[in-house]
């Protein structure tokens, strides 16, 4: 059962990573990279590492994504 979940999550995170690198819209790419971090945190939980899963969920998908958006917002503001 866990193996099936792990396969689904692994494939989903690879798709997320592909979108993050190749999508033209930067907002979509940043959201996709946050998604990769979220899937990685589930994978950490399946690998019996709850501490790492908590940290990754809070930092990888929360704070990093928002910092990217702040920078993107500033750059768009300059281009206007």
């Amino acid at each position: 059962m866990f193996v099936v979940i792990a396969i689904i999550i692994g494939v989903a995170s690879l798709i997320g990573g592909y979108i993050a690198i190749h999508h033209e819209d930067l907002s979509v790419a940043i959201i996709a990279s946050g998604l990769v971090s979220l899937f990685a945190s589930i994978l950490f939980l399946l690998l019996a590492a709850p501490d790492v899963a908590m940290t990754e969920a809070a930092i990888g998908s929360g704070l990093t994504t928002l910092i990217f958006f702040y920078v993107l917002n500033k750059i768009r503001q300059r281009n206007d």
């Binding site: 709850p50 940290t55 809070a58 704070l63």
Partner: peptide, 12 residues
């Protein structure tokens, strides 16, 4: 599970 690093991240 948890500790200083996740706790600090949650506060942030």
């Amino acid at each position: 599970p948890g500790g200083g690093f996740p706790g600090g991240a949650v506060i942030a």
